[in-house]
Computed example of a mutant assay.
Amino acid sequence: MPDWLPIALIAGVAALAVLLLMLALRGRAAERMDRIAATLDAITAAQERLAARTDERMREQERALGQRLDVAAERTQATASAIQQRLSVIDSARQNIEALGGQVTSLAAVLGNKQARGALGEVQLRDLVQDRLPPSGFAWQHTLSNGTRCDCLIRLPFPPGPIAVDSKFPLEAWAAMQDAPDVTSRAQAARRFAADIRRHVDDISKKYLIPGETAEGALMFLPSEAIHAALLAQHGDLFAEAARRGVHIVGPSSFWAVLNTMRGLLRDARLQDEARRIRQQVEALAEETSRLERRVGALRGHYAAMAQDMRDIEVTAEKIARRGDAIRALDIPDETPRKAAE
Results as ranks from 00 to 15, higher is better:
residue 321 A to L: 07
residue 318 E to P: 00
residue 324 G to Y: 01
residue 334 D to I: 02
residue 325 D to E: 15
residue 320 I to V: 10
residue 313 I to S: 11
residue 303 Y to N: 07
residue 325 D to F: 04
residue 300 R to C: 07
residue 311 R to E: 14
residue 311 R to L: 12
residue 326 A to K: 11
residue 326 A to P: 00
residue 303 Y to D: 01
residue 325 D to I: 10
residue 323 R to W: 03
residue 321 A to K: 12
residue 307 A to E: 12
residue 318 E to Q: 14
residue 323 R to A: 12
residue 324 G to H: 05
residue 326 A to Y: 10
residue 305 A to N: 13
residue 319 K to P: 00
residue 316 T to C: 13
residue 332 I to W: 02
residue 303 Y to A: 13
residue 332 I to A: 04
residue 329 A to K: 06
residue 316 T to K: 15
residue 307 A to I: 03
residue 302 H to Y: 10
residue 312 D to E: 14
residue 320 I to Y: 03
residue 311 R to C: 07
residue 333 P to T: 06
residue 324 G to T: 08
residue 309 D to P: 00
residue 310 M to V: 09
residue 313 I to A: 13
residue 319 K to W: 02
residue 328 R to M: 03
residue 333 P to C: 05
residue 333 P to L: 07
residue 317 A to G: 07
residue 300 R to A: 14
residue 313 I to L: 13
residue 328 R to F: 00
residue 306 M to L: 12
residue 302 H to A: 14
residue 334 D to R: 04
residue 312 D to A: 15
residue 332 I to H: 01
residue 329 A to M: 04
residue 300 R to N: 12
residue 323 R to S: 08
residue 314 E to D: 14
residue 317 A to D: 05
residue 308 Q to M: 07
residue 319 K to H: 09
residue 329 A to F: 01
residue 301 G to L: 15
residue 313 I to V: 09
residue 311 R to H: 12
residue 322 R to I: 07
residue 302 H to G: 11
residue 334 D to Q: 00
residue 301 G to F: 08
residue 311 R to Y: 03
residue 309 D to V: 08
residue 315 V to F: 06
residue 313 I to M: 11
residue 318 E to I: 08
residue 323 R to Y: 06
